[in-house]
């Protein structure tokens, strides 16, 4: 018997399915149906939902970059907010496994040479006990390389939009990514400021291109 990771009710699976190697889902159908996948037209660069496909005004504003594109899986709705809060701030590491299949599938589709996590400033890492970006990658059974590191900085999530967009660089290269395409995996894409700073540091490490995958896409 497997229990839902969120509501602790039983997760159901047709009794003959395990015979074919199917695993019980990590969430029960009720919790699962609250997660909304991003579908329909969206920005080609950051996967923000839009009326028709194209490039959103935000991404136009960012201009030329080594950063190629971001793909987000789910809408940052109430259910997703509470999952991310429990995962990242409460520290419920095992919730990363909810997205293991999604992350694996999208990583395969992205076809990059290397995977890189978004580092946390040292004090925040000790506070949280784990890095949420690494947790997502590890839960998907993937390997990541340390290409960049991060100095102490203020919490991104506490900043206003303007502060985030104008954030100064805190990431710096520590590895070699010469000529390689790099995939960055993280929990949320908000303004894209973090991922662009990460991309810049990765470019300094020699990366030829940078893509990102995030579980949720917040912001309007």
């Amino acid at each position: 018997m497997k229990l839902c990771l969120l509501c602790e009710n039983e997760t159901e699976i047709e009794s003959w399915l395990p015979f074919f190697g199917a695993k019980a889902p990590r969430l029960c159908p009720k919790c699962l149906e609250k997660l909304v996948k991003i579908t329909g037209p969206s920005c080609r660069l950051c996967s923000r939902p839009m009326e028709e496909s194209g490039i959103c005004s935000d991404c136009e504003g960012w201009g030329e970059s080594v950063f190629v594109s971001n793909q987000s899986l789910y809408v940052y709705n109430e259910a997703m907010q509470s999952i991310i809060a429990r995962f990242k701030y409460r520290g419920d590491y095992v919730l990363a496994s909810i997205f293991a299949d999604d992350v694996r599938r999208m990583t395969l589709a992205a076809a990059c040479d290397l995977i890189c996590a978004v580092p946390l400033p040292p004090t925040r890492l000790a506070e949280r006990r784990f890095n949420q970006s690494e947790a997502l990658i590890e839960a998907a059974g993937l390997a990541h390389v340390s290409l960049i590191s991060r100095s102490e900085s203020d919490k991104q999530s506490k900043k206003s939009r303007m502060e985030r967009v104008n954030a100064t660089q805190t990431f710096y290269p520590i590895g070699d990514a010469a000529g390689k395409s790099v995939l960055v995996i993280d929990d949320i894409y908000t303004t894209g400021a973090t991922i662009r700073l990460v991309a810049k540091a990765l470019m300094e490490a020699g990366a030829s291109s940078v893509k990102s995958i995030t579980i949720a896409r917040s912001g309007s």
């Binding site: 419920d92 590491y93 095992v94 784990f130």
Partner: peptide, 18 residues
């Protein structure tokens, strides 16, 4: 109801109460 992960505080695999 427990899970575990590599812990950045103590450097070991830590078990935590869910």
């Amino acid at each position: 109801n427990f899970a575990s992960h590599p812990c950045a505080r103590c450097g070991n695999i830590c078990t935590y109460c869910r």
